[in-house]
């Protein structure tokens, strides 16, 4: 569990958590934020439904560590476009083995990565450029900065 504060989060910011084998990641939608139990984070998961969906900030407090990431060198318009990209995939299926080039099946960190790679921001946020983009790759990338952390 962590005590992440969500006060400074803005649309397009990325949340990465650690404490499980792979960690978890999601992208903030400020227009939907209204407290810890209101779904406002775009991610992909296998439950409660399979696929791209909104999750609550409280869920992200359930992990050992949490990072708030800002994508450097982007405008708010670009960050909003990234968030809109996530929203546009709502309901598409979850697949942890889907390649980064596949824009119709998702895992949590790939959604956030793709939202910046395939939109106007044009940023590749995979820190090691591997075949898969793990949540921690988003933290390690040079185009992201940690603006809040909690454990």
């Amino acid at each position: 569990m962590n005590y992440m504060s969500f006060a400074l989060f803005d649309t397009g910011d990325i949340i990465v958590t650690q404490g499980t084998a792979t960690g978890h990641a999601g992208e903030w939608d400020a227009s939907k934020y209204n407290g810890l139990d209101v779904k406002c984070i775009w991610s992909a998961n296998t439950q409660p439904v399979d696929g791209v969906q909104l999750e609550t900030p409280r869920k992200y407090r359930g992990y050992d560590e949490a990072y708030g990431l800002l994508v450097l060198g982007t405008t708010s318009t670009q960050r909003t476009a990234a968030k809109n990209y996530c929203a546009a995939q709502n309901g598409e299926p979850y697949s942890v083995t889907s390649l980064k080039s596949n824009q119709s099946a998702w895992y949590c960190s790939k959604l956030g990565w793709a939202s910046y790679n395939y939109t106007a921001a044009n940023k590749d946020l995979d820190g090691n450029g591997g075949l898969y983009v793990w949540p921690i790759d988003l933290v390690n990338d040079n185009d992201t900065a940690i603006f809040v952390y909690s454990n």
Partner: peptide
């Protein structure tokens, strides 16, 4: 194997040392 290799290349799936930059109070 590809998954395992990707994990290996990032040093045991651990974070690198990275400073926390502080956002302005107005966000």
């Amino acid at each position: 194997m590809a998954v395992v290799n990707d994990v290996d290349t990032q040093g045991d799936v651990r974070k690198e040392q990275k400073d926390i930059k502080h956002r302005n109070k107005d966000g």
